[in-house]
Design a protein around this nucleic acid. Structure first.
Lengths: 277, 277
DNA sequence: GGCGGCGATACCGCACGGGTATCGCCGCTG
DNA sequence: CAGCGGCGATACCCGTGCGGTATCGCCGCC
């Protein structure tokens, strides 16, 4: 299945084999073997191009999920085994620079629980937490609706907050008591920044590229961009930035999420602590 | 992993090997190999007993999920491949004898969709739908809250209904306009029936054993038991049975559920049709 | 028409998974 | 208390399957 996913992603046997660290002929054979076993044509190969069939597209999605599941099984077992001295405990994934105060209160509340174990913090990029939960690098995560997907995860809502626009201090708009999203997206000279997608490439557009919040805030301070963020980001804002509420931006709900079949005592305690803060 | 799950369930290498159709020594080696690779002790073996360690318990849960995922990948791919003439289409799992009218309306509504494919109906026993969704035998299912679990599935609520008690016609209680759950569970000579669990064995207790609804209704008609069911079951009731509302029984919500990463057009259309009926 | 890129085929060798025989440990029993 | 029996571990052997190299066949392109 790993082999098939590699070929389906590359659509090229040679490159896929290289990526897998094997030679091309065994890969061809393995795929053909898989097709025989499933009784389904997965790929249409001409001598110039490889394409997915419908069944192949189904398998690609399902196989990714399956591979994540076995990877998760291995990782979580390793983590559980290392937990003997109680050291690494539970892995919590959260967006770097988001919900700072909430996170601090959550960790405090959990630490006060009777049988609390150490919490391993995983600071993720945009939308990375979901993947970490799925492949077992994390046991529990803080997500932000509606930006993160929670499909297939159990969740508990923690808090909902409005959004603000982050501007350079002294920008004309900072005198206003509130602004509309439409205004923000049309600010002359302040196009919204572009973030890298999961594959690391940036979408096209007018805004500057930003890879993390430090870069972003620097760009805002320099008057090159602006940004709409949950209002709790004001806790950790630089002095040279200002915020204005944006009432018509969608409210952001912070939720705590965990894989649905998790029965870990630590995760349960963490969720319990979270719902109390 | 299959090997480990077998041993963890049997807690006995010999029986597990037999179940797997292999000899015991290779199984011992395979498990030890897995422990080495994960760097974790999974089982504590004395010469008289085998027990799971904490890490082993984690792996058991995760491995079951992973094995379900790969099985689901294979099954769904096979199904997608067979779908070429449009014949088998999408597999819908539902409890036999529940929500009959709703199901009929749902199928009608879906059949009216522009690109509807054939729906393969899977009639399940109690609580079997969840497993079918997880291991890929079904693509979508009708579940009944609060009896079925929906953890890890995407769902859409369809309808909520109260429950009634099903009694033999002419039973004294049938004169009443409603009864309480407490009364039902204490009816002299009418103990609630016992259903087989997922492993096929019956729990202990006074009630008669029932394997399906036909048996159950027969037993009720014979005055050997009674049963609490959603009120929609009255649509398909035999003439020799009667029902009385039980207002304090938990209301039953019928939901349509599907695996969260499903992107199938057919499943989406089915859900859309379901929300409209 | 020849070249080059790419997947398929042919063939080989080795490592790993599975089988049988046997051991070592320990709890039960007469 | 000694002998038996059940159970997991170990030792050793064998065949299959996976991976590697060499080569072919097809086709688009210069």
């Amino acid at each position: 299945m790993r082999y098939f996913v590699a070929v389906a992603e590359e659509l090229h046997f040679g490159r896929a084999a290289q990526r897998l660290g094997i030679a091309q002929p065994p890969l061809s054979r393995a795929i053909r073997h898989l097709e025989r076993r499933l009784g389904a044509a997965l790929l249409t190969r001409t001598s110039r191009a490889v394409a997915l069939t419908d069944a192949g597209a189904v398998l690609l999605r399902e196989a990714r999920a399956a591979l994540d599941a076995v990877e998760a099984a291995e990782r979580r077992t390793r983590r559980a085994a290392r937990a003997a001295p109680g050291r690494p405990g539970v892995a919590l994934a959260t967006k770097a620079g988001a919900s700072g105060a909430l996170l601090a209160r959550l960790l405090d509340a959990y630490a006060a629980e009777p049988d609390a174990v150490a919490v391993d913090l995983l600071l993720c990029g945009i939308g990375e937490q979901e993947r970490m939960l799925r492949d077992g690098r994390a046991d529990v995560a803080l997500l932000h609706l509606p930006y993160d997907g929670t499909a297939g995860l159990d969740t508990e809502e923690l808090c909902t907050e409005g959004q603000v626009v982050v501007l350079p201090a002294g920008h004309p708009l900072t005198d206003r008591s509130e602004v509309q999203t439409a205004e923000v997206s049309e600010l002359p000279g302040l196009p919204l920044p572009r973030w890298p997608g999961p594959d690391g490439s940036y979408p096209d557009g007018p805004g500057p590229q930003a890879r993390d919040h430090t870069q972003l805030f620097q760009l805002i301070a320099l008057g090159r961009t602006c940004w709409i963020a949950p209002e709790s980001c004001r806790d950790q804002l630089r002095e040279d930035l200002a915020t204005v509420p944006v009432p018509d931006a969608p409210p952001v709900t912070t939720v705590i999420a965990w894989p649905p079949h998790s029965r870990s005592r630590a995760v349960a305690a963490l969720v319990r602590a979270a719902t109390r803060v």
